[in-house]
Design a protein around this nucleic acid. Sequence first.
DNA 1: CTATATATTGGAATAATATTGCTCAATAGC
DNA 2: GCTATTGAGCAATATTATTCCAATATATAG
Lengths: 157, 157
Amino acid sequence: MELDRTDKRILDALQKNGRISNQELAEQVGLSPSPCSRRVKQLEDAGYISSYVARLNQSKLDLKLTAFIQISLDRHTPDRFAAFDKVVRSCPEVVEAYLVTGQSADYTVKVIVPDMEYYQEFLLNKITQIEGVTGVHSSFVMRKVVDNTQVSLSHLA
Amino acid sequence: MELDRTDKRILDALQKNGRISNQELAEQVGLSPSPCSRRVKQLEDAGYISSYVARLNQSKLDLKLTAFIQISLDRHTPDRFAAFDKVVRSCPEVVEAYLVTGQSADYTVKVIVPDMEYYQEFLLNKITQIEGVTGVHSSFVMRKVVDNTQVSLSHLA
DNA sequence: CTATATATTGGAATAATATTGCTCAATAGC
DNA sequence: GCTATTGAGCAATATTATTCCAATATATAG
């Protein structure tokens, strides 16, 4: 399946507003409602859209602390990775976790929690308990300069 | 405004599926459609829900490289920060950017691009061009273990 | 513990919105 | 230049959301 200019516009618009009405979407991308609806369905069925989600106001919900944790393991064996992945996936505080390249850290984990006290407990009870974790370094977000989910599609033909 | 159990359930459900129908949402949270609709509207108006967005399949859209950039500045003056913020906010490749605590790095920036070639150009033409940038360190995502937008509300009474 | 006030619910009617079938037009390939 | 294929637009249908109102539940004060 090949994406044309209209498909890209649809994806861009849905990234900005996932609950836009089909009518307004159609207008924005220069289509009438019915082909627009069909295209959206196609894009969904073809797997270009993975999900629709609501984004919440974190500070209103008392989630005041965002932290990045750089974590290193003693050995890079399949069981070490598997154990780590399993724990991390079970933590609701963890919003992102990546195996990354680079110097000493193996994982980069992003965590959203109410406050520093909560964070400290989380780190001690969850992260440092994981078999094979040798190094942990925390960075805390002081200010969010950009916090999007929208990706750029300008590279597509 | 105080959130009760039902409100939290609504927020959780909408974080999972931002396009759930009001009927199904009502059923999930144990309400009939009309009060459910009212509550969602209230939550929106009160600012608990910041937006609804579509999340896209990055690899299908040829966005194969996610990178974290640790960036340090020569001086921590308001004009340095302002200049940096302005550039970074104008880059569609940048999905997240934070001013963080910690050792040498001042900013952590998350970037999503097609490939390494694109990344290299981006780094050279955009990031390193910013006034005051002294250090840049890149980490590349090899595997995504967790990639959510959903935050945990379990800490709320 | 009772009475009153307040807020919230559920159901029905209404309004808005999405979806689908059909016809017509445009475009690409032969 | 003709045919095949695809997509657009219209209209009808179906789905879904929203609003009003009566009734219930909850909280408050006496």
